[in-house]
Amino acid sequence: MSTQVESPAAGTSRPSWLSGPAGRTIGLVVALVLVAVVGVITGGERFASLDNVMTILRLASVTGVLAIGMTFVITAGGIDLSVGSLTGLASVWASTLATQTMAEDVHWTVMVLTALVVGTAAGVVNGLIIAYGKVVSFIATLAMMIAARGLAEMISGRQTQVVSVDGFLDFFRADVIGVPVLVWIFAVVAVAGWFLFNRTTFGRRTVAVGGNLEASRLAGIKVQRHLLYIYALSGLTAGIAGVMMLGRTTAGTSTNGLYYELEVIAAVVVGGTLLIGGRGTIVGTVIGVLIFAMLTNVFTINNLSISAQNVAKGAIIVVAVLLQQRFARRSAST
């Protein structure tokens, strides 16, 4: 036996920057590129065209907006299961006959405003229950998820409400410099989210509260109020997503946004935000969303059935979370 006891970890340990935030982002970009390569190989022209890129981005935009809000929620140590239902509720509420009539009379933005107010208000309810009622976020938002879907069904009478306000349709179906408005909205939300997360006191509080709630409270941070804001923000993104759904599908139905919460949470976690809170990344979230959208696109181009797509996505989520847990364990044990 040699006199040097070499650490078994030493051989496998990577340069420190690789396990840092930059390294993780690079890993994600590599994953994204891999999916793209698979797309080019299997889809050829049909995948690698400007049109298809726009399709992917449009696909990513609605869940993308939700994922930005979810990144704040998860980083703060919570979860919001209600965003999919709230997207549906907001889209239904904004497209009722009453709202559309008012929009025709006043201005089409009335519909937008309605959706944003509905989403934010529901988010505030979530926040109140969680921050002040001390109900765990999983339960509180699960209840909201069920209730909001029910409310959307009641309001719409399970009917599809077709949007006929021209100003609204013109705006959301337009392209600006060749890029769909929906994608622009996602971009704006993502950039605003990045600044909010990384450059403001709001973002700092979010990370601190998620990293150690008790320590944040004892340091004088108003943690309850902050949690309320976080869920309100998540509700707001659901309102925006509701409007975007209306613009994309031109119809408000109570099934809008069904199961979106799952895809959104998956994208956020795959992006590198820790499910236990305390660490999040907006850039990672955006890439995570793009990976999922691109996967869906590649599967669709290859005529994979929705069921098979779901199996594949499930497997990908498990692998991503396994990798992430290894990372979390490593940083906790040292």
Binding site: R199, T200, T201, F202, G203, R204, V207, A208, G211, N212, E214, A215, S216, L218, A219, G220, I221, G278, R279, S331
Partner: peptide, 27 residues
């Protein structure tokens, strides 16, 4: 009760004061 362990030292030191250093919410 005291530290946000995964955050850097300076953010732990300024956990009660980061808002004071900020201008209009910008850190």
């Amino acid at each position: 009760q005291g530290l946000v362990l995964d955050e850097p030292v300076y953010r732990n030191v300024t956990l009660s004061t980061f808002a004071r250093f900020a201008r209009g919410g910008w850190l």
